[in-house]
Design a binder for these strands. Structure first.
Length: 299
DNA sequence: AAGCAGATCAACCGCAAAGTT
DNA sequence: TAACTTTGCGGTTGATCTGCT
């Protein structure tokens, strides 16, 4: 493949955009759209390469861009998503309306990475739990502690444990490996909770796992109760996604059948965690077990 | 007020995937 | 199916800003 000449060699401008250039780009896109970025600058009369125009538009000029500082909630969401997805900035951005991957990436490197460091959370740790071929155990927590398991054969087995005081229960997932290649998602914790308490909780979960009846889970959850849009919802369901909510908790498990799950060669598989916004402040998780499957459904 | 260092963020680069011919 | 083009992504850079001495 022949690489296209760089902008400078073609006499195209680089560096910061001027307000005049911005205006030309905005006017052109408002009038004609942006079907072909490569052709756009020439047609619009801009001495820029298509790539530069696309970047300027998507990261700065787009009308739906939300400017200004990130709220605490947005930061928390980024931390959560990064824990699950790693440096997949565009995937993270897709869950934060009005924010761009570039912006999120910057915020991560300038603020959140440091913030996380102080809370003993590392992306490496969360990656460990989703290694290829491992069993994923999901702990959903509310008034009681419930645990479910997806085994090597895609069988989903919800299991639960006895009640625990809500003082040990909160809203931020954390994870750990059991040392045998299996992975365990711990009961959820406040970030500020100290490690000793986490260990107590881990031990608790490991100790009290008992099978429960399938009726524990209701497969019916209305898409209106999530922050999915219709398009996302359609894609999710086209990919065989299934949403289940525990009948007596507010926790929701979103599960992909293994045949449509993501896995890239021997790499880690990603899961998602997102905060639902229905005024009740709870979490749902999508946990994906690794397998030899081609692609991760994006939504 | 000047100089410096660290923080911030817009923009670029290179690569790979997806799309087209 | 191969060759080529376009688009999107993540990593990195560098100009500018901010706060400290």
């Amino acid at each position: 493949m022949v690489r296209a000449p760089c902008c400078e060699k073609m006499g195209l401008k680089k560096g910061p955009w001027t307000p005049e250039e911005d205006q030309i780009l905005i006017s052109y896109i408002q009038k004609y759209g942006h079907g072909n970025w490569r052709a756009l600058p020439k047609q619009a009369g801009l001495l820029r390469c298509g790539k530069s125009c696309r970047l300027r538009w998507t990261n700065y000029l787009r009308p739906d861009i939300k400017r200004g500082n990130f709220s605490q909630e947005e930061e928390d969401t980024i931390i959560q998503l990064h824990e699950m997805l790693g440096n997949r900035w565009s995937a993270i951005a897709s869950r934060l309306p009005g924010r761009t991957d570039n912006e999120i990436k910057n915020v991560w490197h300038t603020h959140l990475k440091k913030k996380l460091k102080n809370h003993h959370q590392t992306p490496q740790e969360s990656k460990r739990r989703l290694k290829k071929g491992t069993t994923v155990v999901v702990a959903a927590v509310d008034d009681g502690i419930n645990k479910s398991e997806v085994d090597q054969n895609d069988n989903f087995t919800p299991v639960t444990s006895p009640q625990q005081s809500s003082s040990e229960v909160s809203t931020v997932t954390d994870s750990a490996s059991d040392g045998n290649g299996n992975s365990v998602i711990k009961q959820e914790h406040e970030q500020e909770q100290d490690q000793d308490q986490e260990q107590v909780s881990m031990n608790f979960l490991d100790q009290y796992i008992a099978e429960i009846d399938e009726s524990f889970w209701s497969e019916e959850i209305s898409i209106e109760n999530t922050n999915f849009g219709q398009e996302e919802s359609d894609k999710f369901q086209q990919n065989g996604g299934m949403m289940m909510t525990a009948n007596d908790t507010k926790e929701v498990l979103m599960q992909f059948p293994c045949s449509n799950m993501a896995a890239a060669n021997n790499e880690d598989v990603d899961g998602y965690t997102t905060k639902l916004d229905d005024g009740m402040d709870f979490w749902y998780d999508i946990f994906i077990r690794a397998d030899d499957l081609p692609e991760l459904p994006e939504f």
